[in-house]
């Protein structure tokens, strides 16, 4: 049984992809969600719709456009090649780009909801007391919206773990580089290797379930704390 080598490589790769994607999304998503929660301009709804697009677009649409964008003949792919010396398609970096787009709404939307419920008078008060922007962000916004941050991070992480369609199109099934768990599982199923498929499928199921229990448990805990 060589369940271990290639499947553990896939597991490790998937965890790395989910972690890197989540970190990028938290950094990019937080200011974006803040702006969306505050802005009254019409342009904001266009941005909001763009952020939500990956929720309803088939992954094949994203995969197809990414594949075109990654081609060295195009602006994005060409410049990336010139800057880094290698193309984005079939690389870990390419998957990160795809995952950031694919999981964007799962991070931005919970944050936006959290920020909307945030009492902005508190910020003004803090400002009059001389708290700087970073001070206000780390000592006021984050503690008071930590539920939204936790939800965003967990959903972004879990959704990236479960990514399949986009990776199938831009990944190229390379062990250690782009062969994530869902692709390895698909590979096992299609090669009729049900034994290994069961391990991966069962593992992903348990993992996702535990993650959601943690998430809902955390939210419920906060709720009872507030009531009590």
């Amino acid at each position: 049984m060589n369940l271990l080598t290639s499947d553990i490589t896939a597991l490790w790769l998937t965890l790395q992809l989910a972690a890197v994607t989540t970190v990028i999304l938290m950094v990019v998503g937080a200011p974006l969600a803040w702006w969306l929660s505050r802005s009254t301009s019409r342009f904001a709804s266009v941005v909001e719709a763009t952020v939500a697009l990956p929720l309803i677009l088939p992954p094949t649409v994203i995969g197809f456009y990414l594949l075109i964008a990654f081609s060295p003949d195009n602006f994005f792919g060409g410049n990336w090649l010139a800057l880094t010396g290698h193309s984005l398609a079939f690389t870990f970096s390419g998957l990160v780009v795809g995952s950031v787009i694919y999981s964007l709404p799962f991070v931005v939307q919970p944050l936006q909801t959290g920020f909307q419920h945030f009492d902005h008078k508190l910020l003004e008060a803090a400002e009059t007391m001389g708290a700087g922007i970073l001070d206000r962000f780390f000592n006021l916004i984050i503690p008071l919206t930590r539920r939204a941050f936790a939800t965003a991070a967990l959903l972004g992480f879990a959704h990236t773990m479960g990514e399949f369609g986009v990776v199938l199109m831009i990944g190229g099934n390379i062990p250690g580089e782009t062969q994530v768990l869902s692709i390895a599982l698909y590979d096992h199923v299609e090669a009729l290797d049900y034994h290994r498929a069961h391990w991966l499928a069962g593992g992903l199921l348990v993992f996702s379930f535990v993650l959601l229990i943690l998430l809902y448990g955390f939210n419920r805990h906060k709720l009872t704390n507030r009531v009590g």
């Binding site: 594949l67 081609s71 060295p72 193309s87 398609a89 079939f90």
Partner: peptide, 8 residues
């Protein structure tokens, strides 16, 4: 298709 789209 990977070849045709110039990605390999």
């Amino acid at each position: 298709q990977f070849f045709h789209s110039d990605n390999v």
